[in-house]
């Protein structure tokens, strides 16, 4: 169950669980996430709404509402368990070790403050620098995110920037503290397709040039497979399959992952043909589940699937693991 000891792993998440007590009852948003992130690696966490992908990643940096949240498990970032830190330490972690990039930069930025000042604030938060040093550092950061100095972005307000530029500035803010791990929560979903590629390419550049690792949270599995080296698929609060991109493309095992892949119309498919869909809906957040959470929608579900919850396991040393009692064979076509 525990991943083979990978000395180069930058982040190791073990059995992360998050629940909220809400007026409607106990919500088990995350019911067991295991993840291994290597250095300078991009790991995509793919899931639909309600899968728990955002919640689990936010748990890592403590960005969940306090008081009614219970978090358990371990998240070792270079040896330090992020989940066991107290509030002050968590704040220190954010920015210095872990940077977060959100979906909507407009909301993450102060609309009444010029971009330059916000960037400077982000830089200063991690150590006092003199005026000259500050200017150099911010210029450096903007170069790293490929924002040309000719654009004079620093003097503008957030709403004056285009979506792509805003996101680049957000990324600059996120790496301002020297973070080696970036968590990007749907960073390109609100952007045009042509700009998306630029932002994702930027992540890859940062990955390769500075050795930053990136966790890319997305609902778009095709995008994930295009850019990330490793992919984890989440369903109903658990990771149901994880592996390298090739593993998922060539030998997907868990029927839900297969279902996700099939839901996207592909060029090789005949146009107007029927897409293979998964009937039904994911379980509600307060539902108590017995057995595999996907069983009620799975065409191959058996008795065992409904009684016992599958655990994440694989074959031998391979990092490809899945949580299914009846995994698909290579290239199996659904009935």
């Amino acid at each position: 169950m525990t991943p083979g000891l990978d000395p180069s792993a930058m982040l190791r998440v073990e059995d992360l669980r998050v629940s909220f007590s809400t007026p409607r009852g106990l919500v088990r948003a995350v019911r067991g996430v295991d993840l291994v992130l290597g250095r300078a690696q991009m790991h995509a966490v793919v899931g639909e709404s309600g899968s728990g992908k955002s919640v689990s990643m936010r748990a890592l940096v403590g960005l969940l509402p306090r008081g009614r949240t219970q978090v358990s498990g371990r998240a070792l970032l270079e040896g330090v368990d992020l989940l066991s830190l107290d509030e002050d330490q968590k704040v220190g972690v954010r920015g210095r070790s872990v940077g977060m990039v959100f979906q909507d930069p407009l909301r993450a930025m102060n609309p009444t403050m010029r971009v330059g000042r916000q960037l400077v604030e982000a830089v200063s938060a991690h150590g006092q620098l003199g005026k000259e040093a500050l200017r150099t550092r911010t210029r450096e950061l903007l170069d790293m995110v490929q924002v040309p100095s000719s654009l004079r972005v620093m003097d503008m307000f957030p709403y004056e920037l285009s979506g792509g530029l805003r996101q680049r500035v957000m990324i600059a803010t996120a790496i301002a503290g020297g973070a080696r791990l970036l968590i990007a929560d749907e960073p390109t979903t609100a952007l045009d397709v042509s700009i998306q590629a630029g932002i994702l390419d930027l992540f890859k550049t940062l990955q390769q040039d500075t050795g930053t690792s990136v966790i890319l949270i997305t609902h778009n599995i095709s995008l994930a497979l295009d850019y990330a080296e490793a992919v984890s698929v989440m369903y109903a609060g658990k990771v149901v399959e994880t592996g390298s991109r090739l593993d998922l493309v060539a030998s997907v095992r868990m029927p839900y992952s297969r279902g996700l892949l099939d839901s996207v119309p592909r060029g090789s498919q005949a146009r107007h043909s029927r897409l293979v869909t998964m009937e039904g809906y994911p379980p509600g957040p307060t539902e108590r589940l017995e057995g595999c959470s996907f069983a009620n929608r799975c065409p191959w579900a058996e008795d065992m699937c409904r009684r016992r919850e599958p655990v994440l396991g694989g074959e031998g040393d391979s990092l490809h693991r899945w949580a299914c009692w009846k995994p698909l064979a290579d290239q199996e076509v659904p009935a």
């Binding site: 007026p23 919500v27 639909e48 309600g50 509402p65 609100a190 957040p285």
Partner: peptide
């Protein structure tokens, strides 16, 4: 403008938290 697909399925867990303590307060 392409929109974020946070609409389907069920409410992401956090949305439930935002609901006013409808029962109580």
């Amino acid at each position: 403008m392409p929109a974020p697909p946070r609409v389907e399925g069920l409410l992401p867990a956090e949305v439930l938290l935002d609901e006013p303590e409808a029962g109580r307060r």
